[in-house]
Amino acid sequence: MKEFWKRFSRNRSAVAGLLILIAVILLAILAPILYPEDPFSLVGLPMVEPFEGFLLGTDILGRNVAAGIAHGAKVSLLIGLFATLVAMLIGILIGAAAGYYGGWIDDALMRLTELFQTIPSFLFAILLVAIMTPSIESIVIAIAVVSWPTVARLVRGEFLALRKREFVEACVGVGMSDWRIITLQILPNCLSPIIVTGSLMVATAILIESGLSFLGLGDPNVMSWGFMVGAGRTVLRSAWWVCAFPGIAILLTVLAINLVGEGLNDAFNPRLRNR
């Protein structure tokens, strides 16, 4: 673990990513203290320019942009995290079963995975949220439903390779149960790619969420970055900052998570670096 951290911290961009990410997390935690009032409440005149009373200005209705960004951080991070967890759970179960058992189980599960990879994922997510009516839960489910195939394919690949490893055969040879082999022998050996994929997936999930709420499919009860950009686009000509700052928040957060994910990857696979 110590050595892992050492390898990770040698990667400057990964550390920078981690710092940005920590800042975003802190912002999310501190939002209720920094901006105690509801981010939807009208606090001033509409379209006040940045630094003139409000740090990042106000939007078309006179809501505080900075407060919206602070409160939106929590929503983005939580949706990203939970959608990823659900997608991982589905993906690991399906990938593990396909890779371990092979044969017709593998065939059937992989056809299913390919089907989900074929259908246009964002459009599918839009449909799901529209049908289930927009809410945090429906958004999490929709993102998970379109994201799991990546995990399933990865886990299947790892399982397929590890399944043929001799140490797994030795376990079969002493009569170990399938469940025990899957969970205690194979899964721990493919954790590192799963963690890396998972962390990159949080970033993608945040992007999908922002796209959905930009189109007006966000949870109407919570402030989110995508919604702020969407609401500001009508005043693009006169008040660029209403769109610009929430977009930068998304960009920085996603960038930070990607950097951390890549740092993890390099730290897990020290041989691949410096090539």
Partner: peptide, 8 residues
């Protein structure tokens, strides 16, 4: 570019 939302 990889981290930028399309609509933005």
């Amino acid at each position: 570019s990889y981290a930028t939302p399309l609509f933005w």
